[in-house]
């Protein structure tokens, strides 16, 4: 018997206005594992993240975190028990300073975790230093480039000690140099033993970082395996490029 999964999704389905968005998805994510979630636009990847983080309620099926059924738990409570999220559309607070962007993340932690961090202001500076943004701590986040915004959001989620991180296209719209920096940061998270579920379109990036890859198409899980197996799978080409069906 393997280790207890950190995240367990059982037969998850979501129907909105009689349209099936997700259908019968099963998924176990082990602690410390990095799992890539890929699939064409409209396959339900971000919706799947919205269900795991609590912004959408499943029509049927359940989500377990550390064996606790969290299917009806509100998003803020899921965050407080250890589920962090990085958004596709930059989840930073643009009109707040970089310093306040990180500070508010620490202030929102449960009391015992907040106390364990010690001096919050010192911790904020350390977090900004990690991504080379400490020199502009007092600037508004809106002054950052897309890549820097992404780094800020990642560093903030990273520093808030979330056990499971849901990263939604962290390299989208980011320069190659920044992509490499983001990739280094995710590797650091992996080294620290964090569990990561990551949506990406950049397949070489997924191949470099992930232990396992899940492919979604039209709301269903159609493939699952090691990155190198999935990368060369004919079904993947069919999904993305509409090649002849595999027989």
């Amino acid at each position: 018997m393997g280790p207890m999964p950190l995240l367990s999704v059982k037969n998850l389905s979501l129907t909105i206005e009689s349209q099936k968005i997700l259908h019968g998805i099963d998924l176990d994510v082990e602690p410390g594992e990095v799992v890539g979630l890929i699939g064409p636009n409209g396959s339900g990847k971000t919706t799947f993240f919205n269900v795991i983080s609590g912004f959408l309620k499943p029509t049927s099926g359940s989500v377990f975190f550390r064996e606790e059924n969290i299917s009806t738990m509100p998003p803020s409570l899921r965050a407080r028990i250890g589920i962090g999220r990085v958004f596709q559309n930059f989840g930073i607070f643009r009109d707040m300073t970089l310093f306040d962007n990180v500070l508010v993340a620490f202030e929102s932690l449960p009391k015992e975790q907040r106390t364990a961090l010690g001096d919050l202001k010192k911790k904020v500076n350390e977090t900004l230093k990690l991504v080379d943004l400490d020199h502009c701590a007092k600037k508004k986040a809106s002054s950052l480039s897309g890549g820097q915004m992404r780094l800020l959001e990642l560093a903030r989620t990273f520093a808030a000690r979330k056990e499971l991180l849901l990263l939604d296209e962290p390299t989208a719209g980011v320069s190659p140099k920044m992509t490499s920096q983001i990739s280094d940061l995710i590797r650091l998270l992996k080294k620290e033993g964090r569990t990561i579920l990551i949506i990406e379109h950049d397949l070489p990036f997924i191949r470099r970082i992930c232990d396992r890859v899940i492919v979604l198409d039209l709301g269903e899980k159609v493939l699952e395996g090691k990155p190198e197996e999935i990368h060369s799978h004919a079904k993947l080409k069919e999904i993305y490029f509409g090649a002849d069906p595999v027989t």
Partner: peptide
Amino acid sequence: TSIGRRIRATVAHSQAAESLGISSA
């Protein structure tokens, strides 16, 4: 203040604020 920062964070991006543990309710 901490509550002020939480309010401003929710104004800026409510889902991101909730994902940090800020209770919207």
